[in-house]
Design a protein around this nucleic acid. Sequence first.
DNA 1: TGGCATGGCCATAAGAGAAG
DNA 2: CTTCTCTTATGGCCATGCCA
Length: 352
Amino acid sequence: MEGSAVGVSEAKVCKTFQINNRRYLGNKYKLLPFITGVVEKECAGIETVADIFAGTGAVASAFPDKAVITNDLMYSNYICHCAWFGAQAYDQKKIADFVARYNAKTRCGENYMTRNFAGTYFNKRNCAKIGYIREDIERSYKKGELNERERALLITSLLYAMDKIAATCGHYDAYRKGAAYEGALELAVPLARANNRPGNRCFNEDANELVKRIRADLVYIDPPYNSRQYCDAYHLLENVARWEKPEVFGVAKKMDRSGMKSRYCTAGAAEAFEALVGDIRARYILLSYNNMAEKGNSRSNAKISDEDILRILRQKGVVKVFSESYKPFTTGRSDIEENAERLFLCTCYDGA
DNA sequence: TGGCATGGCCATAAGAGAAG
DNA sequence: CTTCTCTTATGGCCATGCCA
């Protein structure tokens, strides 16, 4: 069914991809059965789900029969949400044609990407292609050849394709020196027809501000857990998505990211969380948070204590905690015991 | 001066699938 | 069924800077 969406002829030449075909810190894809299981058992009459720290959007995608609201501070994630959850109609054959044309394109010239990133995360050839494609998407959009959804779909395709070949450990805090660059950039066609309800809405702003204006039956909260800012880890995808061509600096070639930082990565996390919860209008609040409080390196420990989480949520409603053990990724240098991913479900007092 | 934030660097485990 | 191969997944560590 979804597989045939590519079109008869294009299906042969264009590969397809889905929302979870990307590497992302804190990705909840593997935990979806756990999350949806808790919601099915514990929450009645859910019609709208708001995923206000959506990241890849994996959790929102786990509710294909609900109206979804997504939000993320990063534009690169927002663009993907528009692609996956947007309601605007688009021409699937046109997307496949663009993808095929981009994949067939050889000999792209110098551009912003080659000047700034050749020999870092990508080799020069792939940089040239990324820069060419991103420029062409914008040009085509401005000429009216692509609508907003089609622009989002193609940028999403580019971001996912970059992720596949980047010489990284999955994020862009550093590139792997001496690593072999893997293959050539190859775009694929996004299969974005799982949930495109007219009522879906995607936002790109501070979750603390957004919750003052929205209402949902279930608000899912999956904030950053530790001091690592997602704008640091994904600066390059953000750079390409925004395509404002800023100056970049340092070994890692990061752009100025002031104004993109999340308070949930700082010592002010608990305070931010308390304000957020206070402003939420929902019947249920579901929070994902790990139990890394004091277990590992200070850089990786959780910023909000269990005591604060429970104290804050209990002001809002009745709280139940669900836990599932979770093997953290490691490169073999550390050995964290009994890491668990927890779900805090709050049934709100004033939720109706 | 100590706590907090950040820049920059770094790699293997585990599971799935193929092969025998 | 066993073994091999490939793919995919995701933080930890250290040094330094900032600021009350």
